[in-house]
Write a protein that binds this DNA or RNA. Structure first.
Length: 293
DNA sequence: AAGCGAACCTGGCTGC
DNA sequence: TGCAGCCAGGTTCGCT
């Protein structure tokens, strides 16, 4: 499901309830998701206060007053929802006595503010992990991670430097999380179309002989920022699984120009091309062969 | 080193 | 109605 805009949408939905709340109970409905939960997972969180909820690329990061950080990834089909919890301070008045859990509800955070946060993930490609907060950026999940596309460091020059010398197609380079972190299949297709760049073009062509950014690199960096910000403002894209934490749907999918629009007219003014689908490194790429060069 | 394809898992849709 | 086949927003592993 989720690329950067969807994860950011989830973060904004969860933050008002999670940040500052104490976890009364962490209910694990199975032994793990994509990976087993870390040792003593529930015990390291229960009774502790969450001090903030951040995001890096497609990862959510909840800091805990213990000095650890809870890392959460939604995989392809993960979602969170916020519910009213036991409704009282009565010990044991937890969700599972209220019969509200659905299929694939794997993790429930029961909070001291009367809310409970439920993680649902049918495909179980998501995962959760705990690391020392002081080692967050050097831990296995993040130490090789590329530049944050909505961060201050992201611009045409860093894009050119990352892509310099790479023969791999632009589509694959933009999906490589060790170069730019947070883009996925949808927003790569959309950003390339907005920039008039072919997904097949070699990544190194965005740098000139001296390694400087070409005008196309500048336009691509700008379009990446724009499409991500516009998607966040729309609550992300809901194709099948993505939901906001209040259960509502994102609506940026109505603004797709090429993704999942094979056979439709290219929306570029005066282009007249037809959107096509091809497969690159096992993933669908949607593009206009007429205006993307 | 870089660049593919396969694997992980479930559900929804299409076509016979 | 049933069933086989294909497809899906991500990441990681293993083989060229």
């Amino acid at each position: 499901m989720p690329e950067l805009p969807e994860v950011e949408t989830v973060r904004r939905g969860l933050e008002p309830f999670m940040a500052g709340a104490r976890v009364k109970k962490l209910d694990l409905r199975r032994d793990g998701l994509r990976f087993p939960f870390p040792p003593d997972f529930a015990a390291r969180i229960e009774g502790r206060r969450l001090t903030g909820l951040g995001r890096r690329a497609k990862y959510l990061r909840a800091s805990i007053e213990s000095g650890e950080t809870l890392i959460m990834h939604l995989g392809m089909s993960g979602s969170f929802r916020v519910e009213d919890g036991g409704g009282s301070a009565t010990p044991g008045a937890f969700h599972h006595e209220r019969g509200k859990l659905a299929a694939h509800d794997h993790v429930v955070f029961v909070l001291d503010n009367g809310k409970q946060i439920v993680f649902n993930d049918p495909r179980r490609f998501g995962f959760m992990d705990l690391v020392r907060s002081s080692e967050l950026d050097s831990c296995a999940h993040f130490h090789k991670m590329g530049v944050e596309p909505l961060g201050n460091a992201f611009d045409a020059q860093i894009l050119a430097e990352k892509f310099a010398g790479r023969k791999t197609p632009l589509k694959a380079a933009l999906l490589d999380q060790s170069l730019v972190a947070g883009l996925g299949n949808i927003y790569v297709c959309e950003a390339l179309h907005r920039t008039g760049l072919s997904p097949r073009r070699a990544a190194r062509t965005l740098a000139d002989r001296k390694g400087r950014a070409t005008p196309k690199a500048a336009a691509l960096a700008s379009n990446i920022r724009d499409v991500l910000n516009q998607a966040i403002a729309s609550g992300g894209s809901s194709l099948r699984d993505h939901r906001l934490t209040d259960g509502s749907l994102g609506y940026f999918q109505h603004n797709f120009r090429v993704y999942d629009r094979e056979g439709e007219q290219c929306p570029t003014v005066k282009c007249g091309g037809v959107i096509r689908r091809m497969v690159q490194s096992g993933r669908s790429t949607f593009y206009c062969p007429n205006c993307q060069k």
